[in-house]
Amino acid sequence: MTVLTFAKWIVGAPAWIASLPEGLQRLIFQFYQVFIYENRWKFFTDGLATTFIVTIGALLIGVVIGMIVALIRSTHDNQMRKPNIILRILNSICKIYVTVLRGTPLMVQLLIMGFVVMVPKTSFQTTLCAIITLGINSGAYVAEIARSGIMSINAGQMEAGRSLGLNYAQTMWHIILPQAFKNILPALGNELIALLKETSLVTVIALQDVTKAAQVIVSKAYTAVIPYISLALIYLVLVMILTKLLGILERRLRKSER
């Protein structure tokens, strides 16, 4: 693969570019080189697809794990009598899980999962490894968010549900969780945004996400400015869209109480 030089490019460039000042020409050249030459924009779109898949996959795993852990922890803490042995063991496991996952850097967790535990070979396996690692990591944060949400609901709500004859699970599902969810939505949104940005760390297990795409282009085009600034803008726009969507969802949920 040959490196495209400015001199080579300007010769074949459209006439209107030749009439521009040189500084602008060089800028356009850089854009050309980063996005258009050899269809390099495809690195970004492919990378974005991977970033989305990893974010959504990790989100799902994180929410499922987080909910389960939060339910175990708050059920344990809500017991009036001494909790039974199984619940106590589960609660301890959950506590350890949260402590370990929040107490070590995600980068290190990725290295361990990628090079010690899962050691993926194919790109599919690498994607899976990334999703699982980020999901397990996110679950620890979601668990604490969800637990605080459940705890924030007045004890009277549980009592009212139970006094009607609903069992613990029914009261949780129909009465506590819907209210808790509404309360924690902003925090969950923050976690989702953090998760999206943290997917950039999957480059350490050689996954071709959008960050990796920018790195690849830098190595091909011998210029860092446009690829990395573009990368930052891509994340920024994604986060802004997410923020907007979450705001709409929040307002919808709030409306039901007025």
């Binding site: 007045n154 009277g156 709500q157 009592e159 009212a160 549900g161 139970r162 006094s163 009607l164 004859g165 609903l166 069992n167 009465i175 819907p178 209210q179 509404k182 039901s256 109480e257």
Partner: peptide, 20 residues
């Protein structure tokens, strides 16, 4: 106990209606 609670209605000082 859930079966028996169905036959014992309870009204609380703080109402405890389900706000959602």
């Amino acid at each position: 106990i859930n079966i028996h609670r169905q036959k014992m209605g309870m009204v609380f000082q703080q109402f405890n209606l389900f706000p959602h």
